[in-house]
Design a protein around this nucleic acid. Structure first.
Lengths: 333, 333
DNA sequence: GACCTGTATGTAAGCGGTTACACGCCTATT
DNA sequence: AATAGGCGTGTAACCGCTTACATACAGGTC
């Protein structure tokens, strides 16, 4: 069943059918109705490959995440997919892993998919430099189509960013821990992503402003896993009275470690997580965390994406949202 | 940059280039090398729309899940995507929600994407009948392409199923709770999926065999959320001493409820979850759960999918894996 | 009536691949 | 020497759509 069948059935040419489908030009009301009726009757849907081949757009968006099984990212994908679907877009999903090489390869594969736009969630950076290996492949992609970063900030043409004020809220959170008496503060992260770096910056600044000594071994880089974090801490017996984790699961790992050592939370150790995932309410005490408005970032991204694809030239390249600290039982404040 | 450019550059015809790309026929080693060199040099990749239009396959697989933000499903998507990617397939993701209508619509949209095969994770059923509204749309899809169910069982041509022995393991688990003294057993589920029904069957059978009275109000249908389950139980003050939840998050909700009532777990209440997600180790005590070999099911599904697409006619339509009970702190056994 | 304008529709040329079929050449067989 | 067959390669049709351009026709203007 193709456009020729519909045209023959309706007694018109394929061009007319195409125009009815796309609403691209005036078609008389009579013909339009007839064509639509036959399309419905025969359950016809245009072949997307033919459309993609001849037209300039595909109604498909590529989403690249390091790992969908991560709760934060799966929520992002869910928010993105839901809104994109409503707007008539399909989603090609690619999970790159956390290393830069894998990511570059996945970006290339996505580009081959001839998508209309690309969304990158939680961009990771190979290094801390401004023009890392990683940014390069993003820039290359942006030559071909608009690229949208969630939790990323690359200032370049055709790259649109959305991020939250992670540095400020991390500063605030750390300061509160210090104000409530913490002196030995641990920072745990699982990645070198843009937002992880922001958080680290806020954390470090608060320590410096608070006159707290900064010790290298207090910056841990561990897998985002409860068991791994707990295991690591158990093996290395740090002395610390506060912990900032860039992901909730890792914070829960700290909490479990504290429990295994019979340390009281928050009296002996304060703990904060990030992302306000469901992990926060799974533990006892419940975890203080940060709601970084993921849903809002995702929906805003989709809206801007559609605006850009519609040819709107005035879409802002960067927008930000404000996080909220969600106080629960693992902090004194 | 298209196949004509490559052909011209290499001094051969487009047919030869196409043969090099697809390895579909013999090409002399000299020409092959030359064409490959030029392809690499010019960074050429074939247009997938042209391929999809003329060829019969697209190297794209559709994955349909009710909700990727669910931890179990996001893991499934992750396992599937990873293995498919390795095998050279792309993934179109669609999140249908839990209702049958949404699902049917998403299946139709996926079919329009001209995918090679479709994978459905955690198929939901509108009713308990054999030929529900829902099965119909799956059967319709199977007319056009092979359909793979993870945690589903539909006996029809071109539909391939993988499931675990949920009924047996649920029976066993429930029996153990009864043996360890439980008499008032709650069953909590969030869906009417195939596997939820299997679990319910095992649970019910164990109660019957154990001579335990079965009360309708002990079968709860709640959202898969810690807070919702805890909230519901707090509002309705049941008397129960054992709980079987079909998802870990809900089991954690029960645990939190118990804690809020100062009920001891597992002494006063035994709790078991399902899927062995990271939630299990987030709580104290940690949650007894069931590892249903999701990874194995996913990888097995991908392997069979590729076999079917390769024209292998002897791929078994149904396979199953054996779950393992993971004992932790919320049960007496 | 000749001419212009605007609207509805048709024709045909791509888009970039795959592949059936044809063809030329070289070697093996008789 | 004639013939067959296999191998490597080219030609051209086709996949199903979009769209520039052509065309036909109705109504308005002078």
């Amino acid at each position: 069943m193709n456009i020729y069948d519909i045209a023959k059935e309706a007694g018109v040419s394929i061009a007319t059918v195409s125009r009815v489908i796309n609403g691209s030009r005036k078609v008389s009301e009579r013909t339009r109705a007839k064509v639509l009726a036959i399309m419905k009757e025969t359950d016809y849907t245009p072949n997307i490959f033919a459309r993609g081949l001849s037209g300039d757009f595909t109604n498909t968006v590529g989403i690249l995440v390091p790992d969908v099984s991560n709760m934060y990212m799966s929520r992002a994908v869910s928010f993105l997919e839901n809104r994109l679907h409503v707007k008539g877009y399909n989603v090609v999903l690619s999970c790159s892993g956390y290393d830069a090489d894998g990511k570059e390869q996945h970006i290339r594969m996505l580009l081959d998919e001839r998508i209309d736009a690309m969304v990158l969630v939680g961009s990771t950076y190979a290094g801390s430099g401004t023009s890392s290996h990683n940014t390069d492949s993003i820039m290359a992609a942006a030559e071909k189509l608009p690229v949208f970063l969630i939790n990323g900030d690359v200032d370049a043409d055709n790259i649109y960013c959305t991020y939250s004020n992670d540095e400020a809220v991390s500063y605030e959170l750390t300061k509160k821990m210090i104000d409530s008496g913490c002196r030995q503060l641990l920072f745990i992260t699982d990645s070198e992503s843009y937002s992880a770096n922001q958080k680290k910056a806020g954390f470090t600044k608060a320590l410096r402003d608070g006159g707290i000594s900064i010790r290298d071994e207090f910056f841990l880089h561990l897998p985002n896993s409860i068991v791994d974090v707990k295991g690591y801490l158990s093996m290395h017996s740090f002395e610390f009275d506060g912990c900032f984790a860039t992901e909730d699961a890792m914070a829960i790992g700290v909490l479990k470690y504290a429990a295994s050592r019979r340390l009281k939370v928050p009296e002996d150790i304060s703990i904060v997580g990030y992302n306000n995932t469901e992990f926060c309410v799974a533990s006892t005490p419940e975890l203080t965390s940060v709601d970084n408005r993921l849903r809002q970032m995702c929906e805003d991204t989709v809206d801007r994406l559609i605006a850009v694809l519609s040819g709107n030239k005035t879409v802002p390249r960067r927008t930000s949202v404000a996080c909220t600290v969600i106080r629960r039982g693992t902090t004194m404040f």
